[in-house]
Design a binder for these strands. Structure first.
Lengths: 219, 219
DNA sequence: CTGTTTACGAACTAGATAGTTAATTAACGT
DNA sequence: ACGTTAATTAACTATCTAGTTCGTAAACAG
């Protein structure tokens, strides 16, 4: 019998140490911003020490970039498994919008990281080849839905896939990202349960209304 | 003849010192975030010293809150002078959306400050009575447009003013706030001139399409 | 012209913070 | 069993940063 406990609980385990650091770092960066997050605090919240952060990640910035990469990788994994193309175009785009809504609603930390990265003019995301090189599958999906819908005559606009993606993302992102200032100014927590279902319907109606051309003719 | 120069250029001028500090502070907070902004750097970029920042504002946090208050005050001033209610409901809401678009497009620093404030869970905005107490006039405007449109039968949805405001803001805010990550991932600078006019039309078509109920019936 | 107030600047400080050094020990192949 | 390497710890440091101390002089009222 060795000193090693049963279920892979080694005292020294590079993978689990790295994973734990990343998990805590994600929370801390999301909560305090890049400059506001403290390496000491991240270390204190793990079962390991600050030295390990530098051992595995080299610097605060590289740790942050790794957190970003991991967060985006998870998003892409979800997008990869989305299958809405068996639906009729209108239902397909509506479903995609609702899935985007659900995803944003469920991944608050990711949204904060994206906000933070934009405050810093995307200087870190640009340093990550992993992020810049890989495109996202979602644009292809939207493109095909748009083509099908236009062919059928369901969609009147010659809408652009990137624009449509932006429109959907904007709605889903905003209600989570700006919940605090919006709440303070308008006295409504957009992310509260009582608004969720209604707003989820809204994204679908918005995007379908737009694509059908309901706002098109100027009169 | 005194030593005082002609055009109000006194060597000591509390108002202009305060104003200069606020102006520089806004840029610095917007560019680096709350924690990332440096009081020393702000001071260095003014014609005065760090001591003056503490003399007039007391602390980094109070300086930041004052910057926020000033930024919001400017927005409210614009909103206050908006007059779209003489237009027919559809044109009124479309015009409001386009004005919101223009305003967000022109006030990048404001958008960054709002993003920063949300990263900090709105903890500073809540400390400002000036911001929490005063509502915004825009909700009233939208409400009246919605009522008029519903009465006429132009708008089918019993849409809520706050929701509509959110939908418009989301689109206008997102394309500016997230331009860097979006640009890095999709290779398109949403805020580039060549996309501006098209996206401006999009907001209007989106909101009108939604309010007319173009995405409503599920089929 | 003079005393008081308001505005200002230079230099300083205590504590925080990213990053390091160097010694230690667990794991693993042989 | 044993030497090598990978993983880990504790303590340290140089620098930065928000906030302060103290002294000075312009502006202004009488």
């Amino acid at each position: 019998m060795t000193s090693q406990p049963a279920t892979g609980e080694r005292r020294r385990d590079a993978d689990r140490t790295k994973a734990e650091i990343l998990e805590v770092a994600q929370r801390e960066f999301a909560q305090h911003g890049y400059a506001g997050a403290r390496v000491d605090e991240i270390a204190a919240l793990t079962r390991t020490t600050k030295r390990m952060i530098y051992y595995y990640f080299g610097s605060k910035e590289r740790l942050y970039i790794t957190v970003l990469e991991k967060a985006y990788a998870e998003v892409r994994e979800v997008e990869r498994t989305v299958d809405v193309e068996h639906l009729a175009p209108i239902e397909a785009i509506r479903t995609l919008a609702e899935l985007t809504f659900d995803h944003h609603d469920a991944h608050r930390d990711f949204i904060k990281l994206v906000s933070i990265e934009n405050i810093h003019q995307g200087e870190h995301i640009r340093k990550s080849e992993a992020l810049v090189n890989l495109g996202t599958p979602v644009l292809g999906i939207i493109e095909r839905i748009l083509d099908a819908g236009t062919a059928r005559g369901d969609f009147v606009t010659g809408a652009d896939a990137t624009d449509v993606h932006m429109m959907i993302s904007a709605f889903c992102f905003f209600r989570v990202a700006n919940q605090h200032t919006f709440g303070a100014l308008f006295g409504r927590d957009m992310t509260a349960p009582e608004h969720r279902a209604r707003q989820r319907r809204m994204v679908g109606e918005m995007i379908v209304g737009y694509l059908r051309g309901g706002g098109g003719d100027r009169a």
